[in-house]
Design a protein around this nucleic acid. Structure first.
Length: 502
DNA sequence: CGTATAATGTCTAGACATTATACGGTGCTCTAGT
């Protein structure tokens, strides 16, 4: 047995790697910057943990969500790893200071990109040897980067400040453009790419056109009654998640809750846990639900309208069928759906007078302090996310002369909007197309459907002919459900669930 | 674009219709001090 497999066995108790893992680890061990795309549930965390054990230095993991970090830390601790911590705002000041002061005694450190703004942390990290710089869920770099979480676009700068440690970017869904963004933003040099298909043959793809919103709702109720659960319903707004959950509670016999970003953290955690442990059959949610949800047996995902991009859609349907069993994704849409998205995007853009106005505000201010700039703009009536985006580009071109600055700013904001609109349009195009839906989605990632590995036509997509009765609810006696629930609880207690770590 | 709330308008003065406006989704950060 080679050293790689010995490490795998010693720390994780597995005797073989999943597809792709070994090559990715090898690449990192060879000191190559690496970009890896593995399907959801493909075992991404092993790809940085094993190199961590086999090399010197701290493994710094940039993670987008607090819950994700905490989840990972907990799992690693349950496995027996003590030298791991997540540094974030859930800790008290003392706890944070303690971790920063004792950084050399840690092997794995999880942080959000925003945390690297802290001088104290950055200085301490600079004085250490960083063995590996990991960016988890790397598609966030381009998806959330400039306008939503601008710190994502500074990761490259920070990596350089830390002495250019080897980088590993991990994701499940990325287009060529996203990969390019990742390479650029992280300032990777001649990286190794390990790209695996985004296709999930066990998820059948259905799309249905309806005339009205009411018709979609009616259909959703039918589906929830008919289909084998558990399931998810993705809604475009927070309001709608609550409405749908109410309707479903009244009209179906399912245990239902809603979930969105506006709820407090405790409720969100509770519902997520109840769903994972099998005490809920259905969750009506916005796009806030999903990342880091490790539930293997989700059987269906219904979309009440198309999300803003094909990537987002793939991420969301990818939450179904992680156990490899037959699952189904159903997209309900009306003709107008894409138009709404389009208007939303246009509404968040800046028109010329707005740019002039806010730019004047920015240049008037004698400070370069990000916080103060943001406060000022928000006082002038700008939303936080828009203010941050504007400041980001403003600082990028600040050293140029005013006219050039204005020109570049306008150009950037325009590009950003055009790009978003293009994504909506590209999705719309594929929804109205009558060819194989699966092939059509894969073509967005420049993939060809491989006939040998693909699903047979009766479980491919609605365009290829699909029999929904394959996904019909199997009546299970209640006791069996209860037993299954308790088995899950016990397994979790003793950490026996395979999918937990692998 | 579509929906929810706020503001205005109406006619046996407090409820009710009409019109105007805002917003829609995703999340991190952090004080302070012996």
């Amino acid at each position: 047995m080679d050293k790689l497999h010995q490490t795998l066995m010693r720390y994780f108790g597995y005797d073989s790697f999943k597809t792709g893992q070994e090559d990715i680890i090898q690449s990192v061990l060879n000191q190559k910057d690496t970009v890896a795309m593995l399907p959801t549930g493909g075992g991404k965390s092993i790809c940085y943990q094993i190199p961590g054990y086999m090399t010197d230095g701290l493994v710094l993991i940039i993670s987008p969500l607090l819950s994700l970090m905490e989840d990972q830390v907990e799992r690693m601790k349950m496995r027996g790893e003590k030298r791991v911590a997540a540094l974030n705002s859930t800790l008290s000041f003392q706890e944070r200071r303690h971790i920063i002061r004792h950084l050399p005694s840690y092997k794995f450190l999880f942080v959000a990109p925003e945390a690297l703004m802290s001088e104290m942390l950055l200085e301490q990290l600079k004085s250490m040897h960083i063995g590996l710089f990991v960016v988890d869920e790397a598609h966030c770099i381009s998806e959330w980067g400039h306008d939503f979480r601008p710190e994502y676009s500074k990761l490259g700068e920070w990596r350089e400040a830390l002495g250019h440690p080897v980088a590993l970017a991990l994701t499940a869904t990325a287009t060529k453009q996203t990969l390019k963004d990742t390479v650029q933003t992280l300032r990777l040099q001649h990286p190794d790419f390990h790209i695996h298909s985004v296709n999930r043959p066990n998820i059948a793809l259905v799309k249905e056109a309806h005339e009205t919103k009411e018709a979609k709702e009616k259909r959703a109720i039918e589906l929830v009654e008919y289909l084998q659960g558990p399931g998810l319903i993705y809604c475009p707004t927070r309001q709608m998640t609550e409405d749908m959950a109410l309707i479903m509670k009244q009209k179906t016999h399912q245990r239902v809750e809603y979930y969105h970003g506006g709820m407090d953290a405790g409720d969100r955690m509770l519902i997520q846990q109840q769903f994972i442990s099998g005490q809920l059959d259905l969750i009506c949610c916005t796009s806030a639900f999903g990342m880091g949800i490790d539930k293997a047996d989700i059987r269906f995902v219904i979309h009440m309208s198309p999300p803003q991009s094909i990537e987002a859609f793939m991420q969301e349907i990818g939450r179904a069928g992680r156990d490899g069993k037959k699952s189904v994704s159903i997209l309900l849409y009306t003709e107008e759906d894409a138009d709404i998205q389009q208007h939303l995007i246009q509404a968040e853009g800046f028109d010329e007078p707005e740019i002039d106005f806010f730019l004047a505000r920015l240049t008037q201010m004698q400070t370069n302090d990000e916080k103060k700039l943001r406060e000022q703009l928000m006082e002038s009536g700008l939303q936080e996310t828009r203010a941050r985006m504007l400041i980001h580009y403003y600082r990028m071109y600040q050293s140029d002369e005013p006219r050039v600055l204005l020109m570049k700013l306008k150009e950037k904001l325009q590009d950003r909007q055009t790009e978003k609109l293009r994504k909506v349009w590209q999705f719309k195009e594929r929804i109205t197309d009558h060819g194989c839906f699966r092939q059509s989605l894969l073509s967005y990632f420049y993939e060809q459907l491989d006939q040998t590995e693909s699903a047979s036509s009766d479980s491919c997509c609605s365009s290829c002919g699909l029999d929904l009765s394959d996904y019909e609810k199997k009546d299970q006696p209640l006791e069996l459900n209860e037993m299954k629930h308790w088995k899950t609880v016990l397994d979790r207690m003793f950490h026996l669930t395979k999918e937990a770590q692998h």
